[in-house]
Design a protein around this nucleic acid. Structure first.
Length: 485
DNA sequence: TCTGGGGTCCTAGGACCC
DNA sequence: TCTGGGGTCCTAGGACCC
């Protein structure tokens, strides 16, 4: 390397973002505006323009539960997501309480409409949104019920509308640029179609990568459309507070503030070794994101990694109450796993002590199972450690999920009725009732042996070893359990 | 403002194996 | 032998997201 041009590797670090070498992908982030509240307005048009609060665990007339979604009108009153309903009611009285004859009652004009969550309905609306997205992009990542990334590189381009395609777009500023790109037009098309066909509003961010698109969709909510052309991501992000960077929560924000890092620009410019010291591997990654540098591909959402149910309860140390709760949660998790046709190999519980100390315990089995009785049995066994503990919340979780096993059961010549195909059984399950369920479970109980014996001989020995391992672990666990109590 | 429910990913330590 | 080092699995906890 004598003379001549500098090697790329020598000039790139710190030379300003990598979003300009990513072959100019076009990524849209679609983020529905206060989705649950919008869904409620869809079926109750009289809620339009009103402060709407959708509460989970909320029942009409009560003040229990938490805010799942607040409409923008309700947010004006300070109502926020995750806020206890009781607190929300202080900030924004319920419309029903606004009695015009009561001189102390709130002004109806300053009162809100409170409705309980109806997830089934929201999922119906979401599937209509998804239909539009499917039509608009081949590569999609659906992140949650109300949010998705689209890679639309093959549907549009960063070229300026009506201009010479060879001409690069302006990299001036975010927001509707003066010279509009084809990408902006396409994003507008997606946004309009969602509103027209699903009936609910969305905000859309368009950028050359996922993290910039994510921030862009958030930048002008509600009903926003923000475009961040290639090369302008760093400039767009720089003035924003670090908390606006995806992945920076309250803890990281405080850690960064201690380092004198307040904005995305600071974060982008910060020494990455120093960030790694303070935050681990996440630090440098967040810095790259803040610099507009993110080369992750938009990949479809995969199968779930775990399934869980949890529920809050009035703080109690009562053993029977705790066991009943855990049994019910276990049954629910097991049912959902079966519905989805997945086996699980790890069963765990969560016990939250006041004020908010989270304890988790888990135990792995030798092989994947679909066995509701076993979920309950293991969950209760794990709960025994917390016999004396006051808890405010309990949860049950299955993980180490295995979706492939269902097919293998059929392919591998297991008994047709060995219970593995339950996910496909559908509604018949309920109709068969508890007796049938128990029978199926007994079948499952024997499956573990089938699982080991059913392996090809070369793997059977390995399976045995695994089973022994698990037995030993179980024994250990029980020994410790004795120590604790 | 004492905090609902369903997830994901990461880290760290211990056990165990080679 | 004690002296590793590497790899994997498991558990527990933490931070974050919607």
């Amino acid at each position: 390397m004598t003379g001549g041009t500098p090697v790329a590797g020598e000039t790139l670090p710190g030379a300003g973002g990598g979003d300009d070498d990513a072959a100019d992908r076009v990524v849209c982030h679609v983020d529905m505006d206060c989705f649950y509240a919008s869904c409620e307005r869809l079926r109750h048009p009289d809620l339009a323009g009103e402060p709407v609060v959708v509460g989970m665990g909320y029942e009409p007339g009560e003040s229990i539960g938490a805010v799942a979604t607040a409409s923008y009108e309700a947010r004006e009153f300070g109502v926020e997501s995750a806020m206890p309903i009781s607190k929300a009611l202080e900030l924004l009285p319920r419309r029903a309480d606004a009695d015009p004859d009561d001189p102390d009652a709130p002004d109806p004009a300053d009162a809100g409409r409170y409705v309980p969550v109806d997830l089934d309905f929201y999922e119906d609306v979401a599937s209509e949104v998804k239909e539009v997205l499917r039509d608009c992009a081949d590569t999609r990542r659906e992140v949650s019920i109300d949010e998705a990334y689209l890679d639309v590189t093959d549907r549009t381009a960063w070229t300026v509308a009506g201009d010479d395609p060879a001409d690069p777009p302006p990299s001036a500023a975010a927001g509707p640029a003066e010279a509009r790109t084809l990408a902006e037009g396409y994003a507008r098309y997606v946004k309009d179609r969602i509103e027209r066909e699903a009936g609910v509003p969305a905000s859309v961010g368009v950028a050359p990568n996922m993290s910039a698109a994510k921030v862009a969709s958030d930048a002008d909510k509600p009903d926003g459309l923000v475009v961040v052309p290639p090369g302008s991501a760093a400039e767009f992000l720089a003035p924003l507070p670090t908390a606006d960077v995806h992945g920076v929560g309250p803890v990281t924000e405080a850690t960064l503030a201690d380092l004198g890092i307040e904005t995305a620009g600071d974060l982008a410019a910060a020494d990455r070794d120093r960030l790694a010291d303070a935050l681990g591997e996440r630090g440098p990654e967040l810095s790259r994101r803040a610099a507009g540098d993110d080369d992750r591909e938009v990949t479809p959402t995969g199968l779930p990694k775990s399934l869980s149910r949890e529920s809050a309860l009035p703080t109690t140390a009562d053993g029977a109450t705790k066991r009943e709760t855990v049994s019910a949660l276990a049954a629910d998790v097991a049912r959902r796993a079966r519905e989805r046709g997945c086996l699980y190999r790890t069963i765990g519980i969560k016990a939250v002590e006041p004020p908010f100390d989270v304890n988790t315990r888990a135990r792995s089995l030798p092989g994947p199972v679909d066995d509701p009785d076993l979920v309950e049995e293991v969950a209760l066994d794990l709960l025994a450690e917390f016999d004396e503990t006051r808890v405010r919340k309990l949860g049950v979780r299955v993980s180490n999920l295995d979706f492939a096993e269902t097919d293998q059961a059929t392919l591998g010549g297991f008994d047709a009725d060995d219970g593995r195909g339950e996910g496909d059984r559908g509604a018949g399950d309920d109709a068969r009732g508890a007796g049938a369920r128990t029978t199926a479970t007994d079948g499952d109980g024997g499956k573990l042996t089938d699982w080991v014996d059913g392996k090809p001989e070369s793997e059977a020995a390995e399976g045995d070893a695994t089973a022994r391992d698990a037995e030993r672990r179980t024994a250990d666990g029980q020994a410790s359990l004795g120590d604790w109590s």
